[in-house]
C-alpha cells in the first residue's frame, strides 16, 4: 500500500457480473464462476455459459494453486502508477480448476522462470475497497 495513501494505478470498474469476484478478493478469496446449468467453470466473469447458455451462476473458491503457462518481465512504465514497480514480472497461470489467471509474480528470479513452475495466489489490499491477487512460488503438486 502506498505510504502516502494516494493510489495512482489503474483501478477496475466492476460490473454486475464481476462484482462478486472483486468482493471475494477483498475477503482474501479467489472466486470463480461455476455455471448453474452444466457446472463448467469459467473465467473471467461474464453473464453466459458458452457451452449451455445458462445465465445461472454460482461462485466457487479456487484453491489458489497453479503452474506457470507463460510470462513477461516489464521494464517500461506504460502508466505513471507502475514506475516504482519496474521491473516486474507478470505471469499467466494455469489454475488447478482449469482456467487461467494473470498476476504479478514475486520471489522468483528471472532465470528460474519456466513453464510448469508451481505458484500460489496471495492477496494484497492496495487501497480502501481494492484487494489484488499476486503470485508467489508454490509447492510442487
Amino acid at each position: 500500500m502506498s505510504a502516502t495513501g494516494t493510489y495512482n494505478k489503474l483501478v477496475p470498474e466492476p460490473t454486475p457480473h464481476s462484482a462478486p469476484y472483486w468482493e471475494g478478493l477483498n475477503r482474501g478469496k479467489l472466486l470463480l464462476q461455476k455455471c448453474g446449468g452444466c457446472g463448467e467453470i469459467r473465467h473471467y466473469p461474464r453473464p453466459m455459459c458458452p457451452s449451455c447458455h445458462s445465465m445461472e451462476v454460482e461462485w466457487v473458491e479456487a484453491s489458489g494453486r497453479g503452474v506457470i503457462h507463460s510470462w513477461t518481465i516489464t521494464h517500461h512504465a506504460f502508466h505513471p502508477g507502475v514506475r516504482d514497480d519496474l521491473p516486474y514480472t507478470l505471469a499467466t497461470v494455469d489454475l488447478e480448476e482449469g482456467v487461467r489467471m494473470l498476476a504479478q509474480l514475486r520471489g522468483v528470479p528471472d532465470d528460474k522462470l519456466r513453464i510448469g513452475l508451481p505458484v500460489r495466489v496471495e492477496f494484497e489490499t492496495v487501497k480502501e475497497g481494492l484487494t489484488l491477487p499476486y503470485l508467489v512460488p508454490g509447492e510442487p503438486a
Binding site: L10, E13, S18, F78, H79, V82, L102, A103, L132, P133
Partner: peptide, 18 residues
Amino acid sequence: GEFEMPLGAIAPAQLYAP
C-alpha cells in the same frame, strides 16, 4: 481493462509478450 490492467498488464507489448 477490468481484469488485467489494474495488475499492471496495460499495453499491447505486455499483453502480447506472453
